[in-house]
Design a binder for these strands. Structure first.
Length: 406
RNA sequence: GCGCCGGUCGUAUAGUGGCAAUUACACGAGACUGUAAAUCUUGCGGCUUCGGCCUUCGGGGGUUCGAGUCCCUCCCGGCGCA
């Protein structure tokens, strides 16, 4: 039995897309939905009231970061994620699987989880013979050895450990411990890593069953397989069907590295196989065009650091594309970021003021920009959802992207 | 009036014979996709077919193969003595 309940209310004709409602112990999520990232149990530079007022329904924190600091036992003592961070809505935690990638193969290499297929150096693994390169995460068969970026201490995270930590953190929805692979790895490695992820998925589920005695927590399994069709399909099948002690995963995450150009194909492979009646979360994505793509292809949940990271760095979403608020042209621009935008930032401040805050390195700049960006992305997904109900998805998508990419 | 010290890219600086010239800030542009990120990259005299070419360290003159660097002189600023 699952602690979440997912109901599909409307499907996208001829496509995998759907709109629904995901019920959690901390409230309902109207899907598709954008999950705001709050890695260390805080959405950077924005307080929970502002996150909620920007329209966010659910936030995602991180296992590895909270395990290191302040420690999952301490979080538990503080009453768990919701109470600690003063967020009353639904929560998720990522398993630490992404840190296997970001602190491992991708560490200090400028490799991100979405690559351009036009960058040949990333597609030729031989050029990435980096066995001697420094890493903070080293993958073993049984788990991953992390060197803390905070104090250099060594921590061995196994699937069991990740699940234990996540139960201590106390989110509504948690993820299996996986290995997010680098796009630069060759097929042989992707294969090995996938077997490992599947093994870890089973162990994650087993540990979760043991700890989930009150049935308050839902566990999502993660599909990997890089950019390879056979691996993606194999993974989707295995993760879908995986059963331990009569229990299956309550939902699914789609993880790993993608090439921007063929992400939609990969999502389709996977969502064609995943059971229709359970929620699917596309991990770490994305940009507006990715959201249309994902929803069209059957994704229910997204999370991404971009709205807040871009916001803190002075890049702001508008329906005509992203702008750099520090550019000279905005220094005396008295208009809001977007006319008619309902967010707190646009209702109260001008571009010139935001430009001033960023030039002056004032903290409020990052806050106001993040509020707008969160509102922009969360609201975009809500509008897409509405377009599904209105049988208007294709038109809305076309009109939005034409303006946005101009 | 005399004596010191000093005038280098918007600002502050480094530079005592090989220099288009250090560093920081400011300024310009860009990047960011399950957050080692309120971070990072890059440009910042002009032109360039990217190999260079030209013009620059208060002004002028000189020494030298070569001067931001040494000498003379003038201008400007600070301090001290009159």
């Amino acid at each position: 039995m699952s602690s979440v309940n997912f109901k599909i209310e409307k499907k996208l004709k001829g496509k995998l897309g759907r709109a629904g409602i995901l019920k959690t112990p901390h409230g309902e999520i109207e899907t598709p939905a954008f999950v705001v990232v709050g890695t260390k149990a805080t959405v950077k530079s924005v307080n929970p009231e502002q996150v909620r007022d920007a329209g966010a329904q659910v936030v995602l924190a991180n296992t590895y970061h909270l395990y290191l600091q302040p420690g999952d036992e301490t979080v538990k003592k503080m009453g768990g994620l919701n109470k600690m961070m003063n967020w009353s809505g639904p929560t998720m935690t990522d398993s630490g699987g992404f840190q296997v990638f970001s602190l491992g193969a991708a560490y200090k290499k400028g490799i991100s989880k979405v690559i351009q297929i036009t960058n040949p150096s990333l597609l030729i693994p031989e050029r990435f013979d980096d066995t001697d390169a420094p890493r903070l995460a080293k993958v073993g068969q049984d788990g991953v050895s992390f060197t803390s970026h905070l104090d250099g201490s060594i921590h061995y995270i196994t699937p069991e450990k990740s699940i234990q930590i996540q139960h201590n953190l106390g989110a509504d929805m948690i993820f299996a411990f996986d290995e997010c692979t680098s796009p630069a790895e060759d097929l042989k490695y992707q294969n090995e890593a996938l077997d490992r992820t599947h093994n870890w998925a089973e162990r994650s589920l087993r540990e979760h069953n043991k700890l989930n005695t009150e049935n308050k927590v839902s566990l999502f399994g993660i599909v990997q397989g890089g950019r390879e069709e056979s691996l993606r399909k194999k993974s989707a099948k295995i993760i879908s069907e995986l059963e331990v002690d009569g229990q299956k995963f309550d939902g699914f995450g789609i993880g790993g590295s993608f090439a921007k150009e063929d992400m939609s194909t990969a999502i389709k492979w996977v969502n064609d196989i995943l059971p229709e009646d359970k929620p699917r979360h596309l991990l770490g994505i994305g940009e507006p065009e990715d959201l249309f793509m994902g929803i069209e292809n059957g994704v229910d949940l997204f999370d991404c650091v971009l709205p807040t990271r871009l916001g803190r760095n002075g890049t702001i979403y508008t329906k005509y594309g992203k702008i750099h608020i520090t550019n000279t042209t905005y220094r005396e621009d008295l208009k809001p970021i977007e006319e008619n935008c309902e967010c707190y930032t646009c209702k109260n401040y001008s571009r010139a003021y935001l430009a001033h805050l960023f030039h002056g390195k004032e903290m409020l700049g990052g806050t106001l920009a993040s509020i707008h960006n969160i509102h922009f992305i969360v609201n975009l997904v809500k509008q897409i959802r509405q377009s599904i109900f209105d049988d208007n998805f294709d038109k809305f998508k076309k009109e939005f992207l034409e303006k946005y990419k101009h």
